[in-house]
């Protein structure tokens, strides 16, 4: 399955968001997620299913003004 992760196309085997994040290398990181522009809280990641062509945003703390 191809999904757009932070603007770049990536292949994932898992459709379940938590597993897909692990597969993509975000396993133990502090991140927040959105799928197709909608916020997906941590508590809902396990039940969130990804589909081919979905846009996944993975955001982390960063410097800001």
């Amino acid at each position: 399955m191809k999904i757009l992760v932070n603007g770049a196309w990536r292949d994932t085997r898992s459709a379940e968001l938590t597993r897909a994040l692990e597969e993509l290398g975000y396993g133990s990181t502090v991140v927040s997620t959105a799928v197709n522009g909608e916020f997906v809280p941590l508590a809902q990641r396990a039940e969130t299913r990804l589909a081919d062509g979905d846009r996944l945003e993975v955001l982390a703390p960063m410097q800001g003004g």
């Binding site: 932070n6 927040s32 703390p61 960063m62 410097q63 800001g64």
Partner: peptide, 22 residues
């Protein structure tokens, strides 16, 4: 202090280091 959110690259993990510092 003000902080922000940005796209995190799985390889770099820059955000994780920044968050530890703060």
């Amino acid at each position: 202090v003000t902080v922000s959110l940005r796209r995190e690259s799985a390889g770099e993990r820059a955000g994780q280091a920044f968050w530890s510092l703060i």
